[in-house]
Design a binder for these strands. Sequence first.
DNA 1: AGCTGTACCTGCAGGC
DNA 2: TGCCTGCAGGTACAGC
Length: 273
Amino acid sequence: MPELPEVETIKESLKAKILFKKVKEADILCEKLIKYPEKPDFIKNIKDKKIKNLQRKGKFLILKLSHNYNLVVHLGMTGQLLYFNSHQSFDKHTHVLFNFEDSSQLQYNDVRKFGALWLVSDGWLRFVPGLSELGPEPLKKEFSLEYFQKALNKKSIIKYLLLNQKNLAGLGNIYVDEILFRAEIHPRRPSSELSDLEREKLYYTILEVLGEAIKARGTSVVNYMDGNSQKGEFQRHLKVYKRLGNPCYNCETPVERIVLAGRGTYFCPKCQH
DNA sequence: AGCTGTACCTGCAGGC
DNA sequence: TGCCTGCAGGTACAGC
C-alpha cells in the first residue's frame, strides 16, 4: 500500500492522536511480523514507554519512545496502522495491538503480512534492514538536482533506479509510473542516456507529484487508509497507473502495461520516449 | 553491477 | 456456484 505520501499521511494523522501517550501493553497476535526482538522481549520492552515523536524515513515509520527506544514499522503492501479512542473489535488481519494508558488503541492490520515491526534502542536502529541504506529524502534539501543528476549516471533502467530505495527514499510502483508519465520518459530508458533537460524535468516532476500526493493525503487503490481510517484522494489524479487500455489523457493512445523489475508498469507508448 | 525470477501472503476480479 | 489464473502499494535473495 504505502509509498512516501501514504506513510507521511499516516504519520501526521497518528501524531495528532498518540503523541505523548504511554503504552500500557502490546498484544502480538501474529509473531511473523515482529522481526526483533522475540515476542516476550518485545512485549516487555514496549510496556510503559511513552511516544515522544513520530518520524518517517522513506517508507519506514519510526515511533520515538522514551528511554531511547524506537518502534520501527514498515507497512509492506497492505499494512495499516489504525487508531481508535477505545478498545476496538478486530479481525483475522489484525496482528498487533498497542493499548494506551487512556484505553485508546493502535491496531496493526495487514492482509498480506509483508509488513514488519522492530523495537530497537537508538544504537540498534542501523540494524533494521534497509533503514540505514536509504537514499536521500526527495522533499528535503539533501535531494538536490546535483545529487540526482549524478545518481542518474549509473547504468540502470530508469524505473529500476527510481524504485531502488538506495538512490532516493520513498518512491514505489504507483508514483514512479505517474512521475515517468508526467516527465514523458519511457520506463525502460537507461538512466545514463537521459539528457540534461530530461534529468531536470524528472527531478522537478518527482517533487511535484509527491507534493500533490501528500496534499491529497495519499492514493487509495485497494485498502490504504490513514490512522483515522480515512482514504486518500490521489487515485483521482492518476494518469496511467492501472489504466491499461484506456486512452492517454494527452493523446488518446491506449495506455500499455509491461513488466519491469517484476512490477506491473503502465505508460503511454506515444507520450513517453 | 544490474536485472530477472521467485518467494513471502491473502484476497479479489474475470473467464469459463 | 466453483475452479482457475492473474494481479496487487513491498523487499530480499539466488543466479545469470
